[in-house]
């Protein structure tokens, strides 16, 4: 279904429910995986996913169509995930340019994480990145979003997004190749 048609359903009070169900079907998995890679545990990702959809439902009438619907949805999911990290850290606002000190603890505490050689290597490299670098890399590499979309979602200049991604990609390739030798 095209975004325009979906948006029409969502903006009409008589078809809003139908449109919303379609929206859940279309984006649920994609949003979940994006959130999961930010908050790491399945339970947290589940909570954030539900909050995201509630926010989307409440806000859809005010969506001004300045961006693609999917970008707007990803942006809400991203903001909700960061809000969750801030709430989780309790003491202070999470610094996106610093590393997540609890990365490994959160990952290994999750029942729905199965470690294997490749995943451990990936996570080891990802845990050494800042939260912002990690999010940019994940959005491009795993979620297959365009640089332009990532820039809008994270509110970072597109050139910075590109340079961060290529730098991280190079590092990961190098380290994985070295470890497999």
């Amino acid at each position: 279904m095209k975004e325009g048609a979906l948006l029409k359903l969502l903006k009409n009070p008589d078809s809003k429910d139908k449109g919303f169900k379609l929206l859940v079907d279309l984006y649920q998995e994609k949003i979940y995986w994006m959130i999961r890679k930010i908050v790491l545990s399945h339970d947290s990702a589940n909570d954030v996913l539900q909050d995201t959809y509630i926010r989307i439902f409440k806000g859809i009438d005010n969506f001004k169509e300045k961006s693609k619907l999917s970008t707007w949805i990803y942006r809400i999911a991203y903001n909700e995930s960061i809000r969750f990290l801030n709430k989780e850290s309790k003491m202070k606002k999470v610094e996106l340019d610093s590393k997540d000190d609890n990365y490994s603890r959160k990952l290994f505490a999750d029942t729905f994480f199965d470690a294997n050689n490749l995943s451990l290597k990936f996570h080891q490299i990802l845990s050494e990145l800042s939260i912002r670098q990690r999010n940019i890399f994940n959005m491009k590499y795993f979620d297959e979003l365009k640089f332009e979309e990532i820039a809008k979602i994270t509110e970072i200049n597109i050139n910075t997004v590109k340079s961060v991604y290529y730098k991280v990609e190079k590092k990961i390739k190098k380290e994985i190749n070295e470890s497999s030798l």
Partner: peptide
């Protein structure tokens, strides 16, 4: 899912997305 599982080892419980869909729609209706 495979993409995420293969490289990151992260997975979801069985039928998670089906259940989650119902939960989300239920919450919105409520």
């Amino acid at each position: 899912m495979n993409h995420h599982y293969k490289k990151l080892g992260i997975r979801v419980p069985k039928d998670y997305f089906k259940k989650s869909r119902e939960e989300i729609i239920g919450k919105i209706n409520l």
